Simulated scan of single mutants.
Amino acid sequence: MALLHRAELRPSKLDLLATWLPGRPWFAGAAGADVTRVASYRFDDPAGEVGIETLLVRAGDGPVLQVPLTYRGAPLDGADEWLVGTMEHSALGSRWVYDACADPIYPPALAAAVLAGAGQAEEYFEVDGVRDVRPPSMTVTGGRAHGVEPPAVGAPREVVDGEPTLIRADHVELAVVRRPAPGAAPSEAALTGAWPGQPTPLVLAYAR
Rank of each mutant, 00 (worst) to 15 (best):
M138I: 13
Y98K: 01
V84Q: 06
E88M: 11
E123M: 09
E126L: 09
S137P: 02
D77L: 02
P136E: 05
Y71G: 05
L110C: 12
P135A: 15
A113E: 03
L69V: 13
P107R: 11
L83Y: 03
L76V: 12
F125S: 05
G117Y: 08
A113T: 03
V140H: 05
P107K: 09
A121V: 03
A74L: 11
D80R: 05
E122G: 13
P136G: 06
G119K: 03
F125H: 13
G78C: 06
L115Q: 02
T141F: 00
D80T: 14
R131V: 06
G78M: 03
A74C: 08
M87A: 08
S137C: 04
R72P: 03
V140C: 08
V133T: 14
E88H: 14
L110E: 05
E122P: 02
L76T: 06
P136W: 11
D99S: 08
V114R: 02
R134K: 14
W96F: 15
T86G: 05
A102E: 06
V84D: 07
T86Y: 04
G119E: 04
Y106E: 01
D128N: 13
S90R: 10
A91R: 05
L115W: 01
V127L: 14
A100D: 04
E81Y: 07
S90Q: 10
D77K: 06
G73D: 14
E123N: 13
A91K: 12
A102D: 04
A116M: 01
Y124P: 09
D99W: 14
G129C: 11
L92S: 04
L83W: 02
P135V: 14
W96V: 03
C101R: 02
D77N: 06
V127E: 13
G119D: 09
D77F: 01
P104C: 08
A111C: 10
D103H: 01
Q120G: 15
C101S: 14
A79T: 07
S90K: 12
A79S: 12
I105K: 07
P108C: 10
Y71V: 01
A74Q: 13
T70G: 04
Q120A: 15
L69D: 01
L69P: 11
R134W: 12
Y106V: 00
